[in-house]
């Protein structure tokens, strides 16, 4: 598929989904007017707190006060206009009227990881292309089932009963180059908008596998559960899952520690202390 691109978002999306960028001169579009990127509730909070801060600053009538007034003014403007320059610099959009793809591009969490795997690209591709294998490497994934047409699949993630027991979505393959690259993304109506791509490249040390995954944490209970699940460092959880791919390919199993012996430190064992619970044997001085 070839399209004309001009905005940064379009180019990002193209890179991510593996579409070829059209070379040559581009019809130059007028710079788009910056869209509203602050959520409705946040706008009112921003306006009110900005106004109060500005007022307090002006009452102080000293240097600190003027700084406060400046910050308050900026907050109030951000609330009134619905546009936050900081959000737009960071590519964040809190205004929820967007398509899944736009949400992914604008404020998706992006995790990438690269491994060298001592197997051929064909073996790596075969494992990954059969999405049913993915729960073996992704610890939170319960199952992935094929929806029959070879392109669409149904993904189920274990979740607590409070959010309905599972989080689910349908995904479709957007790119499939045997032994080279697979990309997929979730379809409209998913609990969690997400997308991913994995590519394989032959190197003298094995196959270099590059994985990229993106997701958008939704609002509400599912979102807060996902945040709890992935902790403060969602990158790490996803990266460890992806690292499991290398382990499964190379050694065929994931080494576990669950169930190994562990002491309690509460027993009657003898203690070693620096203060010498044992006297030195006779004739030996410290």
């Amino acid at each position: 598929m070839t399209m004309a691109y001009s905005t940064r978002e379009d180019i990002q999306r193209a890179r991510f989904s593996g579409e070829k960028l059209q070379q040559g001169p581009q019809p130059r579009r007028q710079p788009q007017r910056q869209f509203q990127n602050v959520g409705e509730g946040e706008r009112w909070t921003s306006l009110a707190s900005g106004a109060i801060l500005a007022a307090l600053g002006l009452v102080r009538n000293d240097t600190v006060g003027y700084v406060m007034a400046g910050i308050g003014g900026a907050l109030a403007y951000r609330g009134a206009s619905g546009n936050c320059p900081v959000y737009s610099a960071l590519g964040i959009n809190q205004n929820q009227n967007a398509t899944p793809q736009q949400r992914l591009n604008r404020r998706g969490v992006r995790v990438t990881q690269t491994f060298t795997i001592n197997k051929s690209p064909a073996e790596c591709y075969r494992f990954w292309r059969d999405f049913k294998n993915l729960p073996r490497i992704m610890t939170h994934l319960e199952r992935v089932t094929d929806m029959g047409d070879g392109r669409r699949s149904h993904w189920v993630v274990k979740a607590p009963a409070i959010v309905g027991g599972t989080v689910e979505w349908d995904a479709e393959i957007t790119d499939d180059q045997p032994d080279k690259r697979i990309a997929w993304r979730s379809l409209e109506g998913s609990d969690v908008d997400n997308a991913g791509a994995v590519s394989f490249e032959q190197s003298p040390r094995g196959t270099i596998a590059r994985v990229e995954m993106r997701y958008v944490t939704p609002a509400g209970r599912i979102g807060s559960w996902i945040s709890t699940l992935l902790g403060e460092n969602p990158d790490r959880v996803i990266r460890e899952d992806l690292r499991n791919f290398k382990r499964i390919m190379e050694i065929g199993e994931l080494l576990t520690l669950t169930g190994q012996p562990q002491g309690t430190c509460a027993g009657h064992g003898r203690e070693y202390t620096e203060k010498n619970s044992y006297m030195p044997p006779p004739g030996v001085t410290r």
Binding site: E253, L254, T256, G259, P261, Q262, G263, E271, Y272, E274
Partner: peptide, 26 residues
């Protein structure tokens, strides 16, 4: 089984702990 257990700096004990089991197939 008996095992040497680390409890804190300067504190090592010999304790009765569960025997290890086969956890992975290899």
């Amino acid at each position: 089984m008996k095992a040497t257990v680390w409890c804190a700096p300067y504190k090592v004990k010999v304790e009765e702990v569960p025997d290890p089991k086969i956890l992975n197939r290899r």
